[in-house]
Structures are given as structure tokens and as C-alpha cells.
Design a protein around this nucleic acid. Structure first.
Length: 217
DNA sequence: ACATTAAGTGATT
DNA sequence: AATCACTTAATGT
């Protein structure tokens, strides 16, 4: 039988190879909590305070922003294995309420790190510092992509990018869900999404089914 | 068989 | 490209 401590150590080594300081790995193993979230679970919601920063091991987490009116939201990006949520980190640091909502796109497992340590390790461990900074940078790039998408692309372009992102996040070319949900994510209308999807199906790019979209690439 | 939910369509703005 | 009003199709009970 392995102790949970060793289990965590293994997971950190295999999923976060850039964190290579032995003391750091030991600390994470002692302090981190191995956690799971089932597909569809809302992991973080608007207005909630965050006490833990997740280091994602497997699965992917959908991050969305609430629209101005409050009745719409807009899809931002997916968080995948080996990554962490910079939003939760910055929220924690300023002990602000969350500006975003995250849901488990599929079954997710992650290591939860209490904020206190996230902060402490920033100064203590160089590789941790780099890890957090890199994560910030990657998220920033994702956000720039979102802006580009909205400003320069029409709905069809945005939808195609969205489908790609989702397929990549799920590691599958089959996407399950309703047109309505996609419309919500893209701040569009169900009918509009249905029409574009229909058009894409005719070109052979995708195959449609009820609750199901298959990408044919 | 019936009710419910998802998707398709044409018209209007 | 969004919204409305409706139809058609698939699925659950």
C-alpha cells in the first residue's frame, strides 16, 4: 500500500515536470489535496470566494464570464491537465469575489492548494514562481484570442473555433450538448447556431445528431 | 400514447 | 445576426 503522500508526489512529477525542486514537491505532497469533480459540476461561481487554487491533473474545466446583463455568459477558455487557474489565484490574492464561473467539462481531477501556500511558495520556490507566471501568460494569450475572435470573426468563425477548442479539451471529435448551450457560450441565439451548424454539415465538416456534433477533420 | 425537449424553418427587424 | 412564431423530430415516462 502506498501512502497518499507518495501518490501525490508521483502525480506532481508526472503532470507538472517543471516543478522540479524537491522541497517544493514535498510541500505540495503534504499540503495539497487530491480532489475530483464530476462532469457538469460548477466548481466556482460568480461572487463566491475562493480558498483553493486547483492544479489540474486530468479532464478539462470550462471558464466563462458573466455577461453585462447578467442573463448571458461568454465562453473564455478551457483549463487542461498540467495547468492552473490564474483567475482563482488573482482572486485569492486580493481576496475578491470570483468574476468567473468554472464548470467541469468532463470528469476532472486536480490537486487543491490553499491560497496561503500559493502565495508563500511564490517567494520560496523559483519553479513555482515560473509555473504561476507561465500560467498567467498562457491565460492572457487565451484571452487575447477571445478578443480577436469577437472583433475580427463572424459567428461562423467563432463557432468553428469554439468547436475546435471544445474538441481539443475533451480529446474527442464528438461533442455532446445542445445548440442552446453553445448559443449561451457564444452569446448568440439558438436558431443562429443551428443554421450555421446545418451549413457546416452540408459542407461535410461536421455530422449532426441530437445532442451530438461530430467533427470530421 | 402522450409530454417534453431539441432542432429546423420562414418571416420580420 | 437576433427574435418570433411555428413545425418537425427525437426521447423519456
Amino acid at each position: 500500500m502506498e501512502s497518499p503522500n507518495m501518490e501525490l508526489t508521483k502525480l506532481i512529477r508526472s503532470h507538472f515536470p517543471s516543478l522540479n525542486e524537491p522541497d517544493l514537491i514535498e510541500e505540495i505532497s503534504n499540503i495539497g489535496q487530491l480532489m475530483h469533480a464530476k462532469a457538469g459540476t460548477v466548481m466556482m461561481d460568480y461572487g463566491r470566494y475562493i480558498s483553493m487554487v486547483p492544479m489540474v491533473l486530468s479532464g478539462s474545466i470550462k471558464v466563462v464570464r458573466e455577461g453585462k446583463n447578467g442573463d448571458h455568459e461568454i465562453f473564455l477558455y478551457f483549463l487542461k491537465g498540467g495547468e492552473t487557474c490564474s483567475m482563482s489565484f488573482s482572486c485569492c490574492m486580493t481576496s475578491k469575489k470570483s468574476d468567473i464561473r468554472t464548470t467541469a467539462e468532463d470528469d476532472v481531477s486536480f490537486i487543491g492548494i490553499p491560497i496561503k501556500f500559493v502565495d508563500e511558495w511564490m517567494m520560496k520556490y523559483k519553479s513555482w514562481n515560473r509555473f504561476i507566471m507561465t500560467s498567467y501568460d498562457n491565460r492572457m494569450l487565451d484571452l487575447i484570442e477571445v478578443v480577436d475572435n469577437i472583433v475580427f470573426n463572424d459567428m461562423e468563425g467563432r463557432l468553428i473555433n469554439y468547436l475546435k477548442a471544445r474538441s481539443e479539451a475533451l480529446n474527442s471529435n464528438i461533442i455532446l450538448g445542445t445548440h442552446q448551450q453553445i448559443a449561451l457560450d457564444l452569446n448568440s441565439s439558438r436558431e443562429g447556431i443551428s443554421r450555421i451548424l446545418k451549413k457546416l454539415e452540408k459542407t461535410g465538416a461536421i455530422t449532426l445528431g441530437r445532442n451530438r456534433i461530430q467533427l470530421n477533420s
